Amino acid sequence: MGPLIGTTLPVAIGIAISPVPMIAAILMLLSPRAKSTGVGFLIGWIVGIAVAVIVFAALSSILPAADPEATHPIIGVIDIVLGALLLLIGIRQWRSRPKDGNEPKLPGWMKAIDSMTALRGFVLGVVLSAVNPKNLLLAVSAGLAIGSSDVVLWQEAIVIVVFVLIAASSIIIPVVAYLLASASMARPLDALRGWLTDNNATIMAVLMFVLGFVVIGKGIGQF
């Protein structure tokens, strides 16, 4: 179980380091309905990650069974393709960096965050965690690793719980911190939002390059 957690750890961190969802969560915590929308978004984020990983872990069971000591070419090919797609996302993010003096562009839906309800925050959390292409690719990689492992079911469940907690940590930490000390968190959260906004494209590009090569290397190791 320990090696499996180690294998999925970089992928979980890749999901956690997602500037746009972090910016969305911070904007919710700075909105008039901070507590309800923030908690709703957090629950949606956790549910989306958990469902995606569980689904792909279950789907991996349809792959042909293999000797644990043997190679796993099917999983290897899938990992290489996923890694290549992550690299393409990284290239796209790098090219989308704002030029010097230009304001970075953020999704238009962020303008509606101030008027969001807890339910809409929940739905947005699910969409950004499970439907986002980058997170979906990472969930596929983690699900394949977990579902194709030789650990028993209860160990798989523990690995999934650890994975989800790590992947959701970047949203859990600011939301919980705000709930515990809302008055003192407003200024640090606003400063963090500004930094993430300015460096969103660069962070995402570097992250996708690193994870892309990690996943490709994992795929090559399956042969």
Rank of each mutant, 00 (worst) to 15 (best):
L144V: 10
S141V: 15
I74S: 05
L165H: 08
S60G: 10
V123G: 12
S141N: 12
V123W: 12
I171R: 01
V20K: 00
L4A: 00
G76A: 11
G143D: 11
R187F: 07
L192Y: 10
P19N: 05
A65R: 14
E156S: 11
Q155S: 12
I203Y: 01
A142V: 11
R92Q: 12
W94T: 00
V77Q: 10
W45N: 08
R95E: 02
S18N: 10
D198I: 07
L189G: 06
V126Y: 11
G217F: 03
T197K: 14
V175N: 03
M1N: 00
A186S: 13
N199W: 11
L165P: 07
R33G: 14
K111D: 13
A183D: 15
T37Q: 02
V81L: 15
V214L: 06
G121Q: 00
I75E: 12
A25N: 01
V51I: 15
S129C: 09
A66Q: 07
M22E: 08
P10Q: 04
A65M: 13
P73W: 09
W109R: 02
P174V: 08
I43V: 13
Y178D: 10
S129G: 11
R97I: 06
V206C: 07
T202R: 15
L192T: 13
E156W: 02
R193S: 08
D198W: 04
L179P: 06
S60P: 06
A12K: 01
G121T: 01
L106M: 11
G217C: 05
L137S: 10
W109M: 13
I158V: 15
V159F: 09
V47H: 06
F209G: 05
A145P: 00
F56E: 12
